[in-house]
Write a protein that binds this DNA or RNA. Structure first.
Lengths: 220, 220
DNA sequence: AGCTTCGCTGAGGATGTGCTGAAGATTTCG
DNA sequence: CGAAATCTTCAGCACATCCTCAGCGAAGCT
């Protein structure tokens, strides 16, 4: 149901940050600092996607990439350092579905992950909450048959909430996921929630609820 | 429903670019850097079309072509380098449904893929959106019986949008698919959309909608 | 109840995005 | 070769959208 992502990255802060960001974005996540037991995890947990740092102690990302290709049909995204010897990389990047250059913004990584999963068909394209339908590919929102017109930002916000269906999402989390901000500007979220509610509630009861002190939830 | 395309190409940037372009064009895509596990993928995923680079590590494209012919009825397009020994190629090319010479423009590749799939009967030839009919083979457009006269570029644009029926298509995506550009020239798209609308809306309400911040959709 | 914190919402200025007419460049075709 | 059609660029306009701000109301705490 929810896609699983395996992260192999030796740098602790990055590993943790990526892990948290992905799990906040609604994915099942496991992380490891190196390639130890990689095969076992692939076989038993069957991740849909693998994020591999290229520079790893022991076997590097390329070796693991090969393993992943041979023994699973998981997608692979490589994390490469900008200043690595370019020629070598160019040849070796071989086989990944995508790659992200470090340092990266978390929002971008999430977007790439989503893109690859969607390309692989592992992601639902229509999300449903009560009588609300959010079609991610068509960028369309319907409620009880009625088409609802949203701006780009409103749509991103709603789509994210719909993807986290039933779970409470904090304002800061929304800021990073929807706007790519990492600082606090909570009122911005409030303003957009307000607008979204006006449009949504023209066609039915409240779906987007406030959880005081924590954030918002989308549920019926 | 949506045709599946398997891409075997060792050069990373090309493979990724082709993969993304094809999936944006609405195909199901899988990519691999070499012939490893080719048979397995053929048998289990049953692609409608295979794109084979000729120069591959391990088994080359010709060998894979033979395998594909023997064990599947997928179409095959070869990707060949311009400077390869021509005669030899000429003889060996035999058996492929088409071939594309590198370096190629993405738009051209997409067009070839479409052509082969159409020849194989795996692609609809008349696309319908509301009361609009787009006949790809006859290059004709009708709306409510009325014939509408379009220029070549206008037609390509409309046909692409019609093929992605209901899905939002970004301007950049349109630029690469219709014009073969890879840089930004958004206004060009806008100008053509404008012209297309004038012609289309002479016979009925708006079908080609703007999705501000994202692109355009064709739907009723 | 009073105080404080948190959330909601209307207003408005800045910005960005998209639309369109026109004109120059290029290609096609008679 | 010349005319017509088509393609592309450009510039200005119009307006949707974004974001900030400030005031108000609701909820929680003592």
């Amino acid at each position: 149901m929810t896609p699983r992502v395996l992260v192999v990255e030796d740098a602790e802060p990055i590993r943790t940050a990526v892990g948290i960001a992905l799990s906040e974005a609604g994915y099942g996540v496991r992380t490891r600092p190196d390639g130890e037991g990689f095969e076992r995890e692939l076989a038993s947990w069957r991740p849909d996607l693998v994020l591999l740092d290229v520079m790893l102690p022991g076997r590097d990302g390329f070796e693991l990439l090969t393993v992943a290709r041979e023994t699973s049909n998981a997608g692979v995204i490589l994390l490469t350092a900008r200043d690595a010897v370019d020629d070598r990389l160019h040849g070796l990047r071989t086989g990944a579905d995508d790659y992200v250059v470090k340092p990266f913004v978390l929002a971008e990584l999430i977007a790439r992950v989503e893109a690859v999963l969607r390309r692989m068909g592992r992601l639902r394209t229509v999300l449903t909450v009560g009588d609300l339908e959010v079609d991610v590919e068509a960028q369309a929102v319907r409620r009880g048959g009625e088409e609802i017109d949203l701006t780009a930002t409103e749509f991103k916000l709603l789509a994210f909430l719909a993807g986290r269906d039933g779970k409470v999402v904090g304002k800061t989390q929304l800021l990073t996921a929807v706007w790519g901000y990492d600082d606090y500007a909570d009122n911005l979220v409030e303003v957009y929630v307000s607008g979204l509610r006006r449009k949504l509630e023209a066609h039915g009861p409240r779906l987007l609820h406030t959880v005081r002190g924590s954030g918002y939830v989308l549920r019926s």
